[in-house]
Amino acid sequence: MIEIAVQISLLMLGASVLLAFIRLAKGPTTSDRVVAADTLATNVLGVIALFAIQTHNKLFIIAVLALAILSFVGTTVYAKFLERGKIIE
């Protein structure tokens, strides 16, 4: 049962990654691209977590935690750069 759920979730996350990548490629403004990149990172986190469920491997969960903190800080810094023009003032 859980295997079928994981497969369906992987398919949906793949479609979501594709849509986010299209927005990343042809976003009209830079803000659209930043939001698309954040969505892409979150979807990749979901894919890694599903892969950890599928392979019964605990080590991928640590990768999920590390990538979550790094992507949060990256998005925050990019938002500040877009709003102020300078990261450190």
């Binding site: 590390a66 903190i69 790094l70 800080v73 925050t76 810094v77 500040k80 990261i87 450190i88």
Partner: peptide, 12 residues
Amino acid sequence: LMTSVGIVLQWI
């Protein structure tokens, strides 16, 4: 890397 990310975020 994690430690320096925390310090850099404080600095920002």
